[in-house]
Design a protein around this nucleic acid. Structure first.
Length: 361
DNA sequence: AATACGGGGCC
DNA sequence: GGCCCAGTATT
């Protein structure tokens, strides 16, 4: 990758009507300072671009990279993913969060085998018709994988455009988002769409950051409305504050005589849907009732330290109770949502992150 | 239009 | 401890 130069970016003449050189400056910046060695760039296949885009939804690059590497090792291409069991897919997503992404990814892979010959369609409508692919992800796939001329509008682009154009209002508001989409379209270059798309994301993630943007080094600093007004700290407008509800739950760490752990599959909707977790109850009384219905042995719960966990939309206090030397009731033995798992097998299962902390690796 | 949906990074 | 992040689906 070329070394950073000390000179100011050369003035770029407008490339087309309505264009102030935004894209050209961003591309020039990208050539020197962008990221060119991300795992999904080598090789940059549609499948790998798609997978990376979905993993990167609401998730930062550094978090995604190890998950991406493991995932493509297990499922190297789209047909392999489509053919995989759902539990295996979920196990490779466990810990990354927003698990509907993984379920949608899997379903979309199977739909591609049905509808599109086992490949991702090169078509905006067909892409957004697949579960888990919205307008921005579809645009990113088309631009990154094929160089097609479509805009994206992720958190980075929203922040950059809100500052550059001085767009007021929280970007989550539909009216503001509509304006930002129009601006994103207006800046679209006519060539190098894959690089341009990557450039916007690298620019937002490394230079035009949320806190402390590096405006001194910015190739757009002479035309940025927010910088000119000294308002980079105020744009984009923050999401309206909200009070997070608090909930608590009792989870059972039930072991049988061999030290195997009892897991329960989560229901198909709600948080951690379809993941394996610990038996959960609202409080200790409900936990005891659950114990008497499903297990036999002594009800002698040992409280373990509480585990606080924060979601985007509420706070959860997990109160673990440990039970030793319990056994299933004979009638409960055929429940497919319950299984006894040796500690050594836990790593292969899709467990929510806080439950993983509780049970160990 | 508002809410559900994870987990981690950063100040 | 609060805010945000390479958003989408559902209601």
């Amino acid at each position: 990758m070329p070394r950073a130069r000390r000179t100011a970016p050369a003035a770029v003449p407008p490339a087309a009507a309505g264009d102030d050189g935004f894209a050209a400056r961003l591309l020039a910046w990208f050539d020197r300072h962008g990221r060119h060695d991300l795992p999904w760039q080598h090789p940059r296949t549609p499948y790998r671009v798609w997978l990376s885009e979905v993993m990167l939804q609401q998730t930062q690059v550094a978090t995604v990279i190890p998950y991406f590497e493991r995932f493509v090792r297990a499922f190297p291409d789209l047909p392999a993913l489509a053919a995989a069991p759902a539990d295996a897919v979920m196990a490779h997503w466990a810990g990354l969060g927003y698990y509907s992404r993984a379920r949608n990814l899997h379903a979309a892979a199977r739909l591609c085998v049905e509808r599109h010959g086992g490949e991702l369609p090169r078509d905006l409508e067909a892409l957004t018709a697949l579960p888990g692919i919205g307008r921005s992800t579809a645009g990113a796939i088309l631009a990154q994988a094929w160089g097609d001329r479509f805009p994206i509008l992720d958190g980075n682009v929203k922040r950059v455009l809100a500052r550059y154009h001085g767009v007021e209002g929280w970007p989550g508001l539909p009216a503001v988002e509509k304006r930002l989409w129009a601006l994103a379209e207006s800046h679209l270059p006519h060539a190098r769409l894959a690089d341009y798309t990557q450039a916007q994301m690298d620019f937002g993630a490394t230079l035009c950051t949320r806190a402390q943007p590096a405006c001194v080094l910015c190739p757009l600093n002479d035309a940025c409305v927010a910088l000119g007004a000294g308002r980079t700290g105020e744009l984009p407008a923050p999401r309206p504050a909200r009070v997070l509800p608090e909930r608590s739950a009792v989870v059972l760490l039930a072991e049988d005589a061999e030290g195997r752990l009892l897991l329960q599959r989560r229901p198909p909707t709600g948080v951690w849907a379809t993941l394996w977790s610990l038996p959960e109850a609202e409080d200790e009384a409900a936990a005891r009732a659950w114990f008497r219905r499903h297990l036999q042995g002594r009800w002698a719960p040992e409280p373990l330290p509480e585990l606080p966990h924060a979601f985007s939309h509420y706070r959860l206090r997990l109160r673990p109770l440990r039970l030793r030397r319990v056994a299933p009731r004979p009638a409960a033995g055929d429940n497919p949502d319950l299984r006894w798992v040796a500690r050594a097998e836990l790593h292969a299962l899709a467990l929510p992150a806080p439950i993983r902390k509780l049970t160990g690796p």
